[in-house]
Amino acid sequence: MIAVVDYEAGNIRSVCNALTRLGAEYIVTDDPEKIRNASKVILPGVGNAKIAVESLRSKGLDRIIRMRRKPVLGICVGMQIMCRRSEEDNAIGLGIFDCDVKRFLPTNDAKVPHMGWNTISNLESKLFKGINEKEYVYYVHSYYANLCTDTIATTRHADVLFSAALKYENFYGTQFHPEKSGDIGSTILNNFLSL
């Protein structure tokens, strides 16, 4: 069973709709036992990293997630809160991915939020099986994770090269929204479900 974590992370419905389209069975839950035992866990996320991570902590889910040995996927803010810390309201993350989350500075060539379709490159994971370099996926974010040894895909917004996806052991994160990235996104989600 796939567990979609129910916490204060904005709209989780898109992720559920995407799982439904893929024919996957899932539950939306904040029950620590179910999240501990699920075959896959998805941490969706749109909104504020600090609110999201504090909601996770208040439910006692941060440790449950960190201790999992089966696949976990964080999406957007869900990925950012799996990093060490974020400049967004100085949020302290779960410290799974070995990087920090910083704010984009607006310039003439780089509007903030970074919103729309951008590419993924330097793909290094089974998550991207069947996906070509420089395919387009959908992003909406004002903060980014810097490059680190856990980076498994990169993208560029004006001068900033950052992590489009991260992986450490059984933990995966995508800055982009696979649930909104057309057929490419469906393939990536399906690859996660097949891990």
């Binding site: 709209n11 419905r13 898109s14 909406v140």
Partner: peptide
């Protein structure tokens, strides 16, 4: 629409309150 389409979509028309916006967010609008 949210169930059937896998790209972002925006909705509008006659939104006058946070409640109107919440209903559309809950329905799956991006």
């Amino acid at each position: 629409i949210a169930l059937n389409i896998n790209i972002p979509f925006c909705v509008g028309g006659g939104i006058t309150s946070v409640d109107d916006a919440s209903r559309l967010l809950d329905a799956g609008a991006d």
